[in-house]
Nucleic acid binder design. Sequence first.
DNA 1: TTGAAAGCGCTAACAA
DNA 2: TTGTTAGCGCTTTCAA
Lengths: 330, 330
Amino acid sequence: MVDVARRADVSPSTVSLFLRRPEAVSPRASDAVQAAIRELNYVPNMMAGGLAAAGSSVVGVIVPSVRNAFFAETVAALQRELGQARLQIMLGHTEYDQAVETELVRTALSWAPAALVIAGTEHGKTTRQLLEAARVPVVQVWELGGEAPIDMAVGFHHYEVGAAAARHLAARGRRRLVFFSGRANDDKRAAQRAAGFLAAGREMGLAVQHLSHPAPATTELGGILFARMLKEFEGAEGVGIGCSNDLLALGAIFEAQRRQVAIPAQYAIIGFGDLEFAASCNPALSTIKPFGDLIGSEAARLIIKSLADGEAREHPSIDTGFGLVHRQTS
Amino acid sequence: MVDVARRADVSPSTVSLFLRRPEAVSPRASDAVQAAIRELNYVPNMMAGGLAAAGSSVVGVIVPSVRNAFFAETVAALQRELGQARLQIMLGHTEYDQAVETELVRTALSWAPAALVIAGTEHGKTTRQLLEAARVPVVQVWELGGEAPIDMAVGFHHYEVGAAAARHLAARGRRRLVFFSGRANDDKRAAQRAAGFLAAGREMGLAVQHLSHPAPATTELGGILFARMLKEFEGAEGVGIGCSNDLLALGAIFEAQRRQVAIPAQYAIIGFGDLEFAASCNPALSTIKPFGDLIGSEAARLIIKSLADGEAREHPSIDTGFGLVHRQTS
DNA sequence: TTGAAAGCGCTAACAA
DNA sequence: TTGTTAGCGCTTTCAA
């Protein structure tokens, strides 16, 4: 910056001012600085800037996994929207491990982030303490309900998603319900969906059952669970299957094809996610659509607003809801 | 850090030393510092650290999109391996836009990163200049060949992937070949695969054709391209279809089912990616498997080694190759 | 509208 | 093994 200042024949503080509020600098100085920056190919040092300004332009984003299409979509939206405000994303994956999560929060905090985005509302005790003590906007995403939000939240009720799936299947005439889920041990949001599904089914006086597995919820697992169900339900009629996500549903569809089981005649299926293939499936997959992109953009909006409002800011929780997409499998 | 030092009754530099090389500090001081850190819930300030040390512990990672399962896998592996060396990932998506890419490189550079990982070998002129001028390890991933690597590279030859697909289909008795691809305008690696496929097909004296579309390569597009092909190829026999990725292939399979076209009897299909569903499909999808996870872990290994070796480091290019997975669709 | 000066929280010689 | 000291490259008063 000193080099730029010298070349532009102004003081370093004028260069600094130009970088942050160009409109406060005279056109003459502005042109000179701009030219010098270009000629020297100057790249500001964010470390120095962040240190001096006591706060950086990074937003820490902590999700279970980017390999999960849900979070990938939110991360993409966050980057797109935060980028407009010149905020940069620092990403961490917990791989559904609470100890890793705590470590990631600590790391993120050590970058004096402008804000923090973290998936879920249930965290380890230390994580919660760290987040509560952090003097920056914290947005918990992808889940509402459960523990009270630390600061702000953007998401929806997974329990309600499960209940809506069960009610849909009942409305389609299914009297016997099963729920498929993977990652039985660590995906708390999936557990919420299962709980909602089972409770709603029972409330309607239907026979309900839960088939789960510790492995991640993949297409392969969907096939395995479907096969397991066929064995247990031999000859059953009017069965409705709720899947914790669309991959499981896809696997179930394929397994049904292989075994010449009619979908939806014999078994109706509803998934969760509305992943891209859901509409192109054969038969097209009925599913519940979360708005992952909206979650990301709303979170970004809250962050940008909080940063602008400062101390006086509010602490909203936004319910982005979900949509039931009725297609052919139900 | 001064507070911690005071509480532990040592000097700030002892605290600093403890943080970076705990083994160099006496057990007495070590215990005192550790206790003070815990009691004060001290979180080091990376900005200050990075500024003083003239370099940070961030690795900038720039990919076209995390919504793309290929890159998500590599990003996950990078984070896993770099995390071991206490390096943190700073992520950016270009969305296949060269101007965005340049901006992201500039931003990454302004964080004085320990290293940079960027997808592809073909970049805009400015991007290339910035990367060449950067005095940090740069790893170009997911592509080999084309322009000479800037520093290090880990990937494979997409042209060869296409050629292998064409040869496989020919070996399965197909005399007429078609290649499906999406993002016709901006995905250069997809273009390479198409070129390899077409060239190999021609070399073998087969009829070859390219069906492409500017939209992203999705399941939906796969169905659309398959339908388009059926029209053009009415009554054709012994056709082999290469797909630029498994999503297109999945869409083609579904469309074939809907139209009662036999796969592989009438049309053989081979995809690219070996995405999770490929093995569970019906019929199971033949595909070419890149090693996205390996690319990530090798890139991480190169970075860690470069950082350790300093000036004397080497500049390897690693070919992670690909595997042909023969299943039922061919 | 511009510039001088102090200092953000740490690291890295170097000396003790 | 520990402490002293001089910055790292910026931002931010404050005064001119």
